[in-house]
Amino acid sequence: KWEEIAERLREEFNINPEEAREAVEKAGGNEEEARRIVKK
């Protein structure tokens, strides 16, 4: 599940997989929260 979210974030925000994974981890697997983290 987290991998899927990280993949979507990576494609959408054009970030590297590591950044995407970190955002999802910080968000506890919550996609909306992960998006907010990435946008900062």
Rank of each mutant, 00 (worst) to 15 (best):
E12F: 03
G29M: 03
L9D: 02
E22G: 10
V24A: 05
R21L: 14
K26P: 02
A23Y: 04
F13T: 10
A6E: 11
R21E: 09
E22M: 14
A34S: 04
V38S: 04
N30P: 00
L9K: 00
G28W: 12
R35L: 04
G29P: 01
E32G: 08
K40Q: 11
E31Y: 15
E11N: 11
I37S: 07
N14K: 08
E25S: 11
E7A: 15
A23D: 00
E7L: 14
E11V: 09
G29S: 02
A27T: 06
R10T: 13
E7Q: 15
K26R: 14
E22F: 05
I5F: 04
E25F: 05
A34R: 00
F13G: 05
L9Q: 00
I5R: 02
F13P: 06
P17K: 12
R21S: 08
N14R: 03
K26T: 08
N16V: 07
N14C: 07
K39I: 15
E7S: 12
R21Y: 14
A6L: 10
E31M: 12
P17M: 15
E12Y: 04
R35D: 02
V24C: 07
E3I: 11
L9H: 01
I5D: 00
R10A: 15
K39P: 04
E12D: 15
E18S: 11
E33P: 01
V38W: 00
K26A: 13
E7Y: 01
N16A: 15
E19V: 13
A20S: 07
E18R: 08
P17Y: 15
E33I: 10
V24Y: 03
G29L: 04
R36V: 09
N14M: 08
R35W: 01
E25A: 15
E19P: 03
E12W: 02
I5Y: 04
I37T: 06
E32H: 11
E19Y: 08
E18M: 09
E33H: 09
R36Y: 00
R21T: 08
G29Q: 03
E3Q: 15
E25H: 12
E12N: 02
V24H: 01
K39T: 14
N16I: 07
G28A: 12
V38P: 02
R35F: 00
E22Q: 14
G28Q: 12
W2D: 05
R8V: 05
